[in-house]
């Protein structure tokens, strides 16, 4: 009897061991499938352009070079675009988080007169919108076409984010605020000294989501800007993908800037990969450090959403 159960247990543990091994193996495959495309792009970006067009590359650069990156960081157009990308992300995130945070603070006071109607007014916009053309006409009427502010003002506020923030404010014990009020702190001081510091995790989450959104945005650049001075990195990437002319343009630019002598064998394909890595690296460096925050933030979102 006893021997029997233990043998059942034995097979159970052996099965579990097998499961564990298979599981780890499967996860390694998923990890590989996720990472390989990035690795491939890195490999191409460090390879000589002419050489890359002759035969496919897989795991390691055949002919090492830094020329592609050197070309990017000395190319005025790319550098300017990088600056615009950084500016729109930094300014956009700071203004978005502060604006949305303040509105959410007002909304979080449940005893406020008419709060129900405010909420209805806000929520309705989540389910119904004007659509592409009316929004475009509005942006045009506001004079935001070809204006840097088109990256900032329309994304000042988000109803969804304000709901997330509100849910977080709710979890802060009311006694904290009460105590500060008794000590004579005003509304501004309470917000700045108590509410904001206590809500840092949610602000970090929103900042990350919004920052990624700003950094990755391409559509507003495509439809709301005409001149090159507002091009972002994503817009440059988009141009490189969508039109063969952009690559041709780049070739001519290279030739014009005398790059032909300096970088004899640069090709659009390797430049494209280098630009891609250049565009991806900043986000890749940031998100692992904010992981514990955004996991929490998403949870609030799905419960309250």
């Amino acid at each position: 009897m006893r021997g029997n159960t233990s043998s059942i247990k034995m097979t159970a543990t052996i099965n579990e061991k097998i499961f564990d091994v298979v599981n780890v193996f499967l996860m390694l495959i998923v990890g590989f499938i996720t990472l390989y495309p990035f690795w491939y792009c890195i490999v191409v970006s460090f390879n000589d352009g002419l050489d890359a067009t002759m035969a496919p590359l897989y795991f390691w650069p055949r002919k090492w070079t830094f020329d592609n990156y050197e070309f990017i960081v000395t190319n005025e157009r790319t550098l300017h675009a990088a600056m615009i990308s950084v500016l729109r992300t930094v300014i956009g995130v700071v203004t978005h988080v502060s604006f949305t945070g303040v509105v959410a603070y007002g909304l979080s006071k449940r005893w406020l007169m008419g709060r129900k109607y405010y909420m209805m007014f806000f929520m309705f916009t989540m389910y119904f919108g004007g659509g592409l053309i009316p929004t475009y006409l509005l942006i045009r009427a506001l004079g935001l076409i070809d204006n840097f502010l088109v990256y900032i003002i329309p994304s000042l506020f988000s109803v969804y984010d304000s709901i997330l923030i509100m849910a977080y404010y709710d979890s802060i014990p009311g006694a904290l605020e009460e105590a500060a009020r008794i000590d004579g702190a005003g509304h501004f001081k309470i917000f700045a000294r108590i509410i904001f510091p206590a809500s840092l995790p949610i602000f970090a989450t929103i900042a990350l989501f919004n920052g990624v959104g700003q950094w990755n945005a391409y559509f507003d650049t495509t439809i709301y800007t005409r001149s090159d001075k507002l091009l972002t990195l994503q817009a440059i990437m988009t141009k490189m993908i969508n039109s063969a002319e952009a690559l041709q343009e780049m070739n001519e630019q290279m030739a014009a800037s005398g790059a032909v002598d300096g970088f004899a064998t640069i090709k659009p394909i390797t430049i494209r990969m280098a630009t891609m890595i250049f565009t991806t690296v900043p986000i890749t460096l940031v998100y692992p450090f904010l992981q514990k925050y955004f996991v929490k933030g998403i949870m609030i979102g799905s419960v309250k959403g």
């Binding site: 604006f99 303040v102 509105v103 007002g106 909304l107 007014f121 919108g129 053309i133």
Partner: peptide, 19 residues
């Protein structure tokens, strides 16, 4: 505080809706 949000939504959500 809430009116900031209301003003924003009037301009960027309700005006396009009327469009």
């Amino acid at each position: 505080m809430i009116w900031f949000g209301v003003a924003f939504l009037i301009v960027f959500a309700y005006i396009p809706m009327s469009g």
